[in-house]
Design a protein around this nucleic acid. Structure first.
Lengths: 223, 223
DNA sequence: CCTTAATAGATAAACTTATATCTATAAAAT
DNA sequence: ATTTTATAGATATAAGTTTATCTATTAAGG
């Protein structure tokens, strides 16, 4: 059951997350090389630029089903298209954002997302001072309207940027309304039904890793 | 050399990153339970709240050297202090931020960091329209002044929130000035000397993971 | 036509992380 | 005071994932 290559129950061969996380890095490099006038690139070149090994790069790119030519490498445009296709970045996705605070507003204004096919089309908040105002051209609605609008506009992605104490209830509101995936930037874990995709983006967690790295390096300097 | 427990070269027994990333989650939960009036908490309770196993929670908390009592659990205040101490969050760290765009401004205004001992004391930009203005009470300086100020104020942490094409040169500027750790929010990888701590916080990478999860779930629904 | 260099595919090794088991301890209940 | 029970603490096992190695193949260049 383990080594059986014909596990046709899903045929989706779990993609390693580290690979997934490297793809956007390749993507960014490819775009920059394309702008610089290149048309082909080899694994070796990519690996050198990113301080990785050529083998790893090749294995990562393998899963996008992109095909390169021996002695030449990959066609950059094709490779970009393969990554976009693999990640689903070639089709547009619409998202609602809940919690129009500092971080929420920044995400609304962040131009980078549309490059990846993600469009934040509206925001929601419970603060009367913010309701019916606009941030970077996006209207902020009363959180009470979320449910209706999710249903009407069939939005399936929710971005959560509320304080910790409101995170779980906001997530519940979203999923009950029909949101299928939550990108959670609040500093707490949220628990959702198993069919809901939840991606945690907790700055405190990253800061913990950074803090520890710093103190380790500091300790090494002393010794 | 591998199984030798007496590898006294560093004695720092590498902390698993997943453990490190869970600590802030525990931390947040503990603070909320403390506010709710509790004074003790057991691994089982923590595990139930966060949908983890008690064994894993206990093992995670072990590395902070916190100590609990059988039949009762951990003293919440002590556990909070142990986590803070372990992560170095009980001492203040000062940071400079480079790139006062949307995301940069949001991070400047984000109140959460000071809870973890991180203080953004100034920001830098190359845009004349922004230089010498203030964001959430923090002055924005000319990027040309970065080097001097890092040296004078002995700031060792830099937060990088510039567009991809400026990321590497900004990082170079930082490290040459004496910055020891970079928290990189730009959508590209930066390459630094081995003694520099770099923590990548690439939203595109996270979005890739989210996108793939969504398409996998979508595929599962069809079948 | 032959050599070179790069990709493709398959297999093997290493590492990390998670889980389970066992013992000791301390508080609560009888 | 003794028994019970739940939890921490420590060690060992297992699982899973990632990375590396090896061989074959293909296209370009001399």
């Amino acid at each position: 059951m383990k080594n059986d290559p014909a596990e046709n129950q899903e045929s989706i061969k779990a993609i390693p997350e580290p690979t997934l996380r490297r793809l956007p890095i390749y993507y960014q490099l490819l775009k920059s090389r394309l702008n610089a006038g290149s048309s082909e690139i080899s694994c070796t070149t990519i690996a050198d630029a990113l301080h990785l090994t050529a083998i790893q790069v090749r294995k990562d790119l393998e899963i996008t089903e992109a095909s390169g030519k021996p002695k030449v490498g990959y066609n950059i445009k094709e490779l970009i298209a393969a990554i976009e296709n693999f990640l689903g970045w070639n089709s547009k996705s619409e998202a609602f954002l809940v919690g129009a605070g500092n971080l929420g507003s920044a995400l609304i204004g962040y131009q980078g997302f549309k490059e990846y096919g993600l469009m934040i089309i509206a925001a929601f908040d419970n603060n009367p001072a913010k309701i019916n105002t606009s941030v970077y051209g996006k209207r902020i609605f009363d959180i009470k309207k979320l449910s209706d609008m999710v249903r009407r506009m069939k939005v399936s992605i929710g971005i959560l940027t509320v304080p910790a104490q409101y995170a779980q209830e906001s997530a519940n509101l979203m999923t009950e309304a029909g949101i299928r995936a939550i990108w959670n930037f609040s500093p707490t874990k949220i628990i959702c039904r198993p069919d809901i995709v939840v991606q945690h983006e907790n700055l405190a967690c990253s800061l913990a890793v950074l803090s520890k790295k710093i103190s380790e390096v500091a300790a090494r300097r002393i010794s």
